[in-house]
Design a protein around this nucleic acid. Structure first.
Lengths: 120, 120
DNA sequence: ACGATATGTGAAAAATTCTAACGGGTCTAT
DNA sequence: ATAGACCCGTTAGAATTTTTCACATATCGT
């Protein structure tokens, strides 16, 4: 694989990671490597991310095709209403599901406060 | 990645190769490796097929998701597909979509704080 | 200024991948 | 029965890659 491709994969990893609000250390923890491995992926030092592709894609809410090829790969077309879920929305859902019930209540209340929908 | 996963990837490579009528040597030629590398992929000896995924998928007419995961690959969406979204999760998504960008950031950060996936 | 946090990078250890070579099974022609 | 062609499985090790560790720099809040 060309070095330029590696850099582009790394750039997509970084963009997705920042979009879901993770640090390199957080992504590394969820994938199962050290932070500097993630840094090297993102700066194109690694030849390719090899055996961690599926895990990276899952954590970041990306399709593997998108990770490898870029473009508008839509493996993530999860329908909600008429729009697919974005990466940050999937991240929010994953995090929310791992919250305790009272913390979920707090999150919902805050979302209501912030939201521009009036609820009756 | 678990050895069983490697074997399953190899089994999918072999099934697709036979379906398109190629020998190991022919596949190796088109991908750009030696025949024994292909044999090792198919018998699960290689950790994973790493940098050749896209090439193998192209030659065999497979999606990369299918190669890695098998089945009707749905990437991360399956995790949520297995469990339908609950009412509060739908509410959270709806509210989140109607938030401003900086409020979304706050919600994500709080979700990360509450979540038991928290790093560090 | 200081501490915490996030990230980039050099060097080297650790791991992996691939090649070359060997061996075995099957099939066909002689 | 034998030889040759073809296909594939496996081993050992060279080559390459990946990951870790440790250090450095920048930014931000106090």
């Amino acid at each position: 694989m060309q070095p330029a491709d590696n850099f582009e994969i790394g750039a997509r990893i970084r963009a997705a990671r920042e979009r879901v609000g993770l640090t390199q250390a957080a992504l590394a923890l969820q994938v199962g490597v050290t932070r500097s491995a993630v840094a090297q992926w993102e700066t194109g030092r690694a030849g390719q991310v090899g055996g961690h592709l599926a895990q990276i894609a899952a954590v970041l809410g990306l399709g593997i095709d998108h990770l490898l090829r870029g473009g508008a790969a839509q493996s993530l077309a999860q329908e909600f209403g008429e729009r697919a879920l974005t990466g940050d929305e999937l991240a929010l859902l994953r995090l929310y599901r791992n919250c305790q019930a009272d913390d979920r209540t707090i999150l919902l209340r805050m979302a209501r406060r912030f939201s521009q929908i009036e609820e009756k």
